[in-house]
């Protein structure tokens, strides 16, 4: 499961939003094939799922969807809640987009997708408010802002709009799970350093002097930066070991 990471400066193309929206965010990867295929291929579907979870992880590899990733991850639980809300929106909107993909003319593609995504975001927003009120209060503004999470629109436009329903669902699930795991990881690191606990369970007892910086805004940037550096370092180590 070790994949090569670029160790040099990441090319400019790996960072911009337009690339995410056009579906080619990872430099040097061959373009996704657009040709029609037999409808149901289990291996392909599995691959669609796995690719989103790790190889093309939105947060760690493509630096997308960072606003919610940095803002709500003061604890692992908050990160998980945000991740699951986004996952639900992704699966619903990617499957809708895939179902209607042949009826939407190219010129109104993006507006239609935005309407679809905004609809599901509002549904999630309303249902969380009604049945998980505390979660809704914690995530606050960042629930409606799922609409402008570039990962959601990016996957709908670059993948679901050109693929069969099962593949679109697999991709949305994969990318959504990848996003959720990334938020849990970032939340766990910040919670561990900032409060000495993970998922609310104290690991060191009162002996741990909390490193508050990691709960504050600067700590979010720094924690993610350190995690990326750590990942690069480990990848380099294992490459040397081989």
């Amino acid at each position: 499961m070790q994949h090569e990471r670029p160790t040099g400066p990441v090319p400019a193309s790996a960072l911009t939003l337009s690339d995410a929206l056009s579906g080619e965010a990872v430099a040097g990867r061959p373009a996704l094939d657009v040709a029609p295929r037999p409808a149901f291929n289990l291996r392909e579907i599995g691959d669609d799922f796995v690719r989103g979870v790790w190889r093309e992880n939105g947060v760690f590899k493509q630096m997308l969807g960072l606003c919610p990733a940095l803002a709500v991850t003061t604890t692992a639980v908050n990160g998980m809640a945000m991740g699951l809300a986004t996952l639900a929106v992704m699966v619903a909107s990617s499957s809708s987009v895939s179902i209607i993909r042949n009826w939407i003319p190219g010129s109104v593609r993006i507006p239609s997708f935005i309407v679809i995504i905004a609809t599901f975001v509002t549904v999630v927003d309303l249902f969380l408010n009604a049945f998980a009120h505390d979660v809704h209060k914690t995530l606050g503004l960042f629930i409606p802002l799922i609409v402008v999470n570039c990962i959601v629109l990016g996957r709908a436009d670059a993948f679901a709009a050109r693929r069969s329903l099962p593949r679109a669902i697999a991709d949305a699930l994969g990318v959504g799970v990848g996003f959720t795991l990334a938020l849990i990881a970032l939340g766990a690191v910040r919670e561990l350093l900032g409060m000495g606990s993970v998922f609310g369970i104290s690991l060191f007892g009162d002996a741990y002097p909390p490193f508050l910086l990691f709960l504050l805004p600067p700590g979010a940037f720094i924690a993610l930066g350190l995690m990326l550096a750590g990942g690069t370092y480990l990848a380099a180590l294992s490459a040397r070991g081989n």
Partner: peptide, 21 residues
Amino acid sequence: AALMAVCIAGAVVLAWSDRIT
């Protein structure tokens, strides 16, 4: 027409969710 249809479908879903919640 396609965009309108999407908008109307969205509005229906939302009106329904609002009623429930």
